[in-house]
Simulated assay, not measured.
Amino acid sequence: MKLPTIITLLGTLLWLPSAATQAQSREASEKITRELTLTADAGRSTLAVYNLFGSVSVQGYSGSKVLVEITKTIRARNAADLAQGQKEAQPGFEQRGDSVVLYLQGPHDTRPRRQRNSGNHQLDYEFSFDYVVKVPAGMQVDASTVNGGSVRVQDVTGLVKARNVNGPVAIVNAREATVARTVNGDVSVSYAAVPRQASTYHTINGDITVSYPAGVAADVYFKSLHGELFTDFPQAEVLPARVSQNEERGSAGTKYKLSKETAVRLGKGGTDFRFETLNGNVTIKQLSR
């Protein structure tokens, strides 16, 4: 191969990444804010956030209104597609009775049991919405996203549900029952007080770390295919495997099966806390005073 040919080839290879970067370089962001007044006491009110791409952060505070700040980001290859994304991708706000619902109005309606389509055409842009929400601390919260971000709920004293698919879930300073679920990511929960109702923690690929006050009394149920359970609680007792009756009955009689869960009693036992992961460990920690 002649020297000029080699130089030309190298120049082409160096140009290709630059051209690809330029093709993807168009981006537009904007801040969207909204202030919502509750129609009922905070303790009887619920915030639901149904995100698709991006993070959700919810923090309890001493105020009486729901304060919403959304960062909307659109990425596209050209100006026309960017403008289309700015037009189509819109947040939705809904108040139904004692509920405040934050969702995506377009290009997909992310509310449960809504058909998610974008007019049956392929999107020529990417979009994300990052939610930062302040709520009266006593509200119940149900926050979720799917891709490209984390879910975090902090300083909320009501019931909390935090769900993700591809990303971590964190709940900080909870006081009531919690549901923390993701598929690919870690789950982290800490409690300012021992929850009085059953709570569940679940991930497929990730670790689960939960911290309780020292005086917790609970029965822990742990299930993992490739993981272990660790705890620093001094009074932790492994319980016998539970036997449950199988509903199938044959000519040989009724079948019984042993539960595949490991049961551990903390303190005197009581409230059920259920942990499940496929590939990951579970760590139950005692909060330091």
Rank of each mutant, 00 (worst) to 15 (best):
Q59H: 08
A174C: 09
L13Y: 04
Q197P: 07
T178N: 05
A170H: 07
I284N: 02
A42C: 06
Y221S: 13
E261S: 09
A80L: 13
V194Y: 04
T5K: 05
G63Y: 00
P4N: 03
R265A: 12
D272K: 14
V49S: 12
R196D: 03
Y191L: 05
Y125H: 11
S62K: 13
P107F: 12
V165D: 00
Q286T: 13
T157I: 09
V100P: 06
L123R: 14
L38H: 00
V151Q: 04
A143K: 02
S251A: 13
A170V: 11
G138A: 15
G167N: 02
N78T: 11
T209D: 13
K161D: 01
E27F: 09
T178A: 15
G148R: 03
Q245A: 12
V165M: 09
R111C: 09
S99I: 09
T231C: 14
S18A: 15
V210G: 06
S150W: 06
Q140A: 15
Y103H: 14
V160W: 00
T21Y: 13
A177I: 09
L38G: 02
S29I: 05
R114M: 11
E276I: 11
E35A: 10
R75M: 12
R113L: 08
Q122M: 14
V160D: 01
P195H: 05
Q84N: 09
T21S: 11
L36R: 07
N166K: 04
V68G: 07
A192P: 00
S18G: 13
H108P: 01
T254G: 04
A83W: 00
D124F: 13
R242G: 08
Y212H: 15
I284S: 01
S288P: 01
F230Q: 11
R26H: 15
F222E: 04
S45D: 05
T37I: 08
S244H: 07
V156Y: 05
L14D: 01
I208W: 05
N279A: 04
V187M: 12
A170L: 10
R44V: 03
G63N: 02
V135I: 14
G149K: 08
L102E: 00
K2A: 12
A42G: 03
L13K: 08
P91W: 03
R114Q: 12
G54M: 07
A137F: 02
S224I: 05
S190M: 08
V141P: 05
G269M: 10
N279H: 12
V172K: 08
A217V: 07
D142R: 15
T73I: 07
L38M: 07
N166D: 11
Y201F: 15
D232Q: 14
G267E: 01
